[in-house]
């Protein structure tokens, strides 16, 4: 037997570290988008591994929709402080006030409004690379995403203009005004992320674990009841044992009923899950191409 053999997690970890170091070396002003969600937690761990014992050589950036779960923001701030990392937060609220982002009447979720907010932050700090925790297995339109995903001056993604990526060579060359989105977790699946969280004993915000919460049934999913989302008259509020699988805007992030209170339990649930993790997100359901449309405009 060959003792020089990497497990799939080791392989993915090494690939991610390599990508993070390429970003540090090839770009002048990179940032790491850290939401406090599980994928960005894994990405942050890889960044620690990539640069230890030095500090992570770029600031963390979060676009706060104002609809974030409070547990998430608390976690985000604490984690950044523990690592001694600089955390930049830009809010949709602020972007709305400045007129950078405009709401469409009736629009509840702020996922779309993150786009102009993010692009404005990229411009404000003249970031030339933004690291994101997106994975190719999340959604069909992401299956062809590159590690280094090129964006034009308007932050737009053109699926036809993406650069071929071979071996572990990434072309990060830009002209001023353009930027790169970089996804070190491209090849990870939801299961890989959980297994890695388990292996590395990573701390997660509490909403990933089963907890009692008031929810209402809307468009086939359980949505958390809160100030922003009061139940309608005809809706029945239920208190259920739930957790979230993926974190987006609180207005559109469906909870699933679950008894999973540990990472081990969650791995058990994920391995028997019959619905993709984004299956719980109302914003993807609008049309079969909705993710692709948002991506073209500059979504992660």
């Amino acid at each position: 037997m060959n003792k020089y053999k990497l497990t799939h997690l080791d392989y993915l970890e090494s690939e991610g570290i390599h990508v993070l170091r390429e970003v540090a070396a090839q770009f002048e002003r990179p940032t790491l988008m850290f939401s406090g969600g599980k994928d960005s937690i894994v990405m942050l761990r890889l960044a620690e591994k990539a640069f230890r014992p030095a500090r992570i050589p770029f600031p963390l950036l979060n676009v706060d929709t104002g609809h974030n779960f409070p547990e998430l923001n608390e976690f985000r701030d604490r984690r950044a402080a523990e690592l001694g990392a600089k955390l930049i937060v830009r809010t949709v609220e602020d972007a709305l006030a400045k007129g950078i982002a405009t709401q469409v009447p009736g629009e509840l979720s702020r996922n779309r409004l993150q786009i102009p907010t993010l692009l404005a932050a990229i411009e404000e700090f003249r970031f030339d690379a933004a690291l994101g925790g997106a994975r190719r297995d999340e959604e069909k339109a992401r299956a062809k995403e590159r590690f280094f995903s090129f964006r034009d001056e308007f932050g737009q993604w053109d699926p036809k203009k993406q650069r071929p990526e071979l071996w572990n060579i990434y072309n990060g060359r830009l002209i001023p005004g353009q930027h790169m989105r970089v996804f070190p977790l491209s090849n990870w699946t939801e299961m890989d992320v959980w297994e890695y969280i388990q292996r590395e004993k990573l701390e997660l915000p509490s909403i990933y674990f089963a907890h009692k919460r008031e929810v209402v049934r809307r468009a086939g999913q359980w949505l958390p009841v809160n100030d922003l989302l009061p139940p309608k008259d005809n809706e029945e509020v239920k208190t259920l044992q739930v957790r979230v699988r993926t974190i987006g805007d609180i207005m559109s992030t469906g909870c699933i009923e679950s008894e999973a209170t540990t990472v081990e339990h969650i791995i058990g649930e994920v391995s028997t899950a019959r619905v993709t993790e984004r299956g719980g997100r109302a914003d993807d359901k609008v049309s079969e191409s909705s993710m692709e449309d948002r991506k073209r405009e500059g979504y992660f």
């Binding site: 299956a143 699926p159 090849n187």
Partner: peptide, 29 residues
């Protein structure tokens, strides 16, 4: 395995698309 809309419209695959699956013994890309 069809990804992008333009491909769906043309009924062909035009890029490299990456897919993931696992069995108890291995992970595959």
């Amino acid at each position: 395995t069809d990804g992008l809309r333009s491909e769906r419209e043309q009924g062909i695959t035009i890029d490299v698309a990456y897919r993931y699956f696992a069995t108890p013994r291995r992970k595959f890309i």
